[in-house]
């Protein structure tokens, strides 16, 4: 009964509190005994937000990240190389971060691979539009970092006619 009444009250779109009309501290058990109270009357006024400037540095102080995943780690900021096994270059466009590779072992329970390193997957999931973004991220997390500039792609003009040049070694016979 009580539940349905509250439900109904909620359904009516207003959050109400049932105040008892009988005993002081007793809860109202009947709907008609209930006194309608607006939400705003109950809730305290929310204090106005005063923005406090917290530097990234301080955030890391209280973040609770174990120390072994802050200072001791070294990140490599790089653009992945083109997959030698495939033609396209799409994967080489974004910058990535990779932390020093730590030990993995075979878990005796299921034979799966285990690691004690919670950050071992970040290179798979994080992409940065620019080197500076990646650096900023590393600094925020207090990781040491090395930046590895990518090897620029070289596009050297080629032409089909080389196969048929009569006085060059690039001539190709029938194959």
């Amino acid at each position: 009964m009580l539940r349905t009444s509250i439900l109904r009250a909620i359904q009516a779109g207003k959050c109400v509190r049932m105040a008892s009309s009988g005993g002081k501290d007793l809860p109202a058990t009947r709907y008609h005994e209930a006194k309608r109270v607006e939400v705003d009357e109950i809730l305290e006024k929310t204090p106005e937000k005063t923005p406090v400037k917290v530097s990234a540095d301080e955030t890391m102080d209280i973040s609770g990240v174990p120390l072994e995943h802050i200072e001791t780690r070294t990140a490599r900021i790089f653009k992945p190389a083109k997959e030698a096994t495939q033609t396209p270059w799409g994967n080489t466009l974004a910058w990535r971060i990779e932390l020093d590779n730590r030990q993995r072992w075979e878990n005796p329970l299921m034979g799966w691979s285990s690691t004690g390193d919670p950050l071992s997957n970040i290179s798979m999931n994080m992409k940065f539009a620019s080197k500076e973004d990646a650096v900023a991220f590393c600094e925020k997390n207090r990781w040491d970092y090395d930046i590895e500039e990518p090897n620029a792609r070289q596009i050297k003009p080629k032409n089909y006619g080389q196969n048929y040049s009569w006085n060059k070694r690039s001539r190709i016979g029938t194959k």
């Binding site: 190389a81 083109k82 997959e83 030698a84 096994t85 030990q103 993995r104 072992w105 075979e106 799966w112 691979s113 090897n151 620029a152 070289q154």
Partner: peptide
Amino acid sequence: SNIVLTHRTGELLRVIPKINDD
């Protein structure tokens, strides 16, 4: 030569080249 080491579950599986024109 620059290479890419492919590994899984702490086991080295293969080596493929990494492009380096130099």
